[in-house]
Design a protein around this nucleic acid. Structure first.
Lengths: 136, 136
DNA sequence: TTAAATGCAAAGCATTTGCTAAAGG
DNA sequence: CCTTTAGCAAATGCTTTGCATTTAA
């Protein structure tokens, strides 16, 4: 079982309470991009006394520590994923809402160079593509 | 005076009411990325009877018609800009909040090709870079 | 004339917060 | 112990909506 998020919490000096441990586990096991409500649902399957407010507070804390990254992906709700999953971007199928992750170091480099010509050193790169299944 | 947004509204068969004309003018004159509240403020300088609800309804309508594009740029409020300003992306200075626009057809092409390898035809491309003034 | 648009206030979501009780180190 | 955290419910902030009225075409 993967407990990397919990380990990261400990390394960051966070108090490992019951709820926090459960949320860390849910995050570690997720392979998708759950929103807060979904995280709450999954956490409650393990311990149904965990409140939504705690989930919100936890993801906000973990984001501040750099453990999680927040994504918007068009919808109204924020989605979270472990920051450690490497630099990747999102390709969203508008019809199904399905999200594909991809990497592209060349594009990253190109963007960093562009930023530099504007005098900025890039820190965070967000790329989101929205499209639909080709007719073909 | 530039009234391009109003022209686009007419071409799209939209009824040109007083409020709508004012909002169109405000949008045409904007060179930045105003949020809805700011659009409302600017519209009210011209006619203070225009309600916030109308501004919301109008930007939503214009977005549906493809006349406006919505941007998130990190904050929780939606920001709008004319779609006709060419495909451009945003480089945000984290310290000042200043937004620089840039274009990069090569990167766009590269991303379209990547999407195609995943069987999707890209429709919308969003790129946001966040960085800070280089130490030099 | 008549369907569409407006204003207002109320409702809706997602998210945050104040407060008190509980619990980790 | 003593600070941090959890739970709850109320508050917040942005956005949408219902309804009666006005307006453009």
């Amino acid at each position: 079982m993967d407990i990397s998020i919990e380990r990261l919490c400990i390394e960051n000096g966070l108090k490992m309470t019951g709820p926090r441990r459960v949320i860390a586990r849910v995050l570690s096991e997720a392979t998708d991009h759950p929103d807060v409500e979904e995280l709450h649902r999954r956490a409650n399957r393990i311990d149904n006394r965990i409140s939504l407010a705690t989930v919100y507070r936890t993801v906000r804390l973990l984001e501040a520590k750099g453990i999680l990254s927040r994504r918007d992906l068009g919808s109204r709700r924020a989605r979270y994923e472990p920051s450690g999953d490497g630099n990747h971007f999102h390709l969203v199928d508008k019809e199904t809402g399905n999200v594909i992750e991809f990497e592209t170091p060349e594009v990253e480099d190109a963007l960093r160079i562009i930023a530099r010509t504007h005098g900025l050193e890039v820190d965070v790169i967000k790329i989101e593509l929205f499209g639909r299944r080709s007719a073909k």
